[in-house]
Amino acid sequence: MRLRVVVATIGAIALLVSGCSGSPRDMSMGVREAQSAVGTARLALTSSEDGDTTGSFAEAMVDEAGTRLSSASSTASAFKPTDRRTAAQLEAVTKALGDADTAIRHASEALAGFPGAPSVRDALDELETVATDLGDLAGNLEAPR
């Protein structure tokens, strides 16, 4: 019985420690999620252009990438900067995630083909730029773990 209590206490403490405090790792995790989302959107656009997927499938993929990106933003913003260096990092991350969000929205519009929507080609270029930015950013941040 005593052993169980000890294990449960250790478990609860570990949960508290790991769950509550934001750390610079949150930024890297957020960037990683965003890279994954942007990569997904790029795949969806290229495959839709090549005729490998149906329109609704590609749209579903881009939608999911959008959902993933909002989760990336909340992951990254869990970190509360404590010094000037990390504050600047967080600002860069927030900006990059915002750009990624715009790029994915444009991708979605390009697929839907609204009048006035960007062309698939333009959306792809935008995603590529964002992907490069995110890659540079990931290199400058601490390793995700």
């Binding site: 990683r32 999620e33 994954s36 997904t40 795949l43 490998d52 997927t53 149906t54 499938f57 993929m61």
Partner: peptide
């Protein structure tokens, strides 16, 4: 490509890439 799977569409996507719309 650094894509982590978190949706069903990503799970089946490689099939579309390999075998096209029929495969999909």
């Amino acid at each position: 490509r650094g894509i982590d799977v978190d949706a069903l569409s990503q799970t089946v996507f490689p099939v579309a890439m390999g075998a096209g719309q029929l495969g999909l």
